[in-house]
Design a protein around this nucleic acid. Structure first.
Lengths: 212, 212
DNA sequence: GGATGTGAAGTCGTTCACAGCT
DNA sequence: AGCTGTGAACGACTTCACATCC
């Protein structure tokens, strides 16, 4: 399917195009040119075409791209046409917020399990927070639950000092994809993938730009 | 010294070096070489030196860098030596989670105000969630509160369709830095800065890599 | 001796410009 | 005529390699 290695930036932009195309589709637009899409996404028009060219030919010369076709194709490329089943590990403030984060649901990302090292202590509190009873499992059961529920992505929302341990458990349970919110560098074996979401790095960036 | 434009990637790495140096400092290490720091941060040693070279000379040839000095300097460069006062707009699940996110406190980022369009409806619920009474202000008061409390950074945690409106209000209140969690592209005038934190983009990225 | 700081080389991503298709 | 797809030019970031200094 894919050959030349695709820049990560391209994948990020594909995600952005996808959001924009959804808006266009909602507005009832049928066709869009690379120039229009580029303007909407604040990128260069040639960039749009190059990004798509990594994966095939999706447009019609002299016309542009059919909005819903292109959206469909991009989702297929990103793998966001399929449903991804995820587990959250660490049900503190951030974990429980993500647990009921609506924008995960819109996309095909489903959280199908929540773990903590001390479910008993927090299960009542979290259920109250979220206004509904929540099942929180002990981290010890991770491996079997992952298998039972076909979990492919693990989300780490523990404190930084536990992140590596949790990552090890996820790897052990053969969860190949990890989304890490804990501000800590994580090591995983070849074949496993970690993506970080570091708020504070972004904040540092912002602070820097405000200081210059 | 601080003239050539610095790549954003460099600033992101500086943030990472800073985290690693804190760990080294905690361990009582006095001196570190670019090679050691590079290994710890999973980057190239020359990269470390080049990144620092944008801002001056911090090392001693034949020796390395003094950990606490370098940490101090990097924090000064990033502007994270000073205290940054922030406001959150949108006190849903994510907003209230960030409100009590402990890693903000460690760094010099302080959330000093929380806004919502309907504080009355949610103030009780959020206070319960967080286990302490929380002051949530009506978005209408944003401008004056920003002035009174010297707020320099605004965090947007509203639904996507309200993000631009909130950004406009922040700009209107002269908040120059915006950290946007709503999955929407935001426009601000010259001189204002937006940084996005899009979980779902990162998830799309992860899903892509798992699909390849 | 050993590690930094840095010009030069190399790699990667972006933009240009136009041929080619509808 | 208009817009895509793409080789070529460009620019930016990373890595190498070594002169420089402690």
């Amino acid at each position: 399917m894919k050959f030349s290695k695709v820049p990560e930036a391209t994948i990020r932009r594909l995600s952005r195009y996808s959001r924009c195309l959804e808006q266009l589709q909602a507005k009832g637009e049928k066709v869009v040119s690379s120039a229009q899409l580029a303007t909407k996404c604040a990128v260069n028009a040639a960039q749009v075409r190059k990004d798509l060219a990594y994966f095939g030919e999706f447009g019609i010369r002299g016309v542009g791209y059919y909005v819903s076709e292109l959206l469909f194709d991009i989702k297929r490329i990103l793998g966001s046409d399929k449903e991804w089943r995820m587990a959250i590990v660490g049900m503190g403030n951030l974990g429980s917020a993500l647990f009921s984060y609506k924008d995960f649901l819109k996309q095909n990302y489903k959280i199908v399990a929540a773990f903590d090292i001390d479910p008993h202590r927090i299960i009542g509190r979290v259920s109250e927070k979220l206004g509904k009873p929540v099942e929180i499992l002990h981290s010890d059961t991770l491996r079997e639950v992952v298998r039972e529920r076909n979990i492919e992505i693990g989300i780490i929302t523990t404190p930084a000092n536990q992140a590596q341990k949790v990552a090890d458990q996820l790897v052990e349970a053969d969860v190949r994809g990890i989304l890490n919110f804990a501000p800590a560098q994580i090591e995983v074996p070849e074949g496993y993938i970690v993506k970080n979401v570091f708020f504070t790095t972004v904040l540092d960036n912002l602070a820097y730009l405000l200081s210059v």
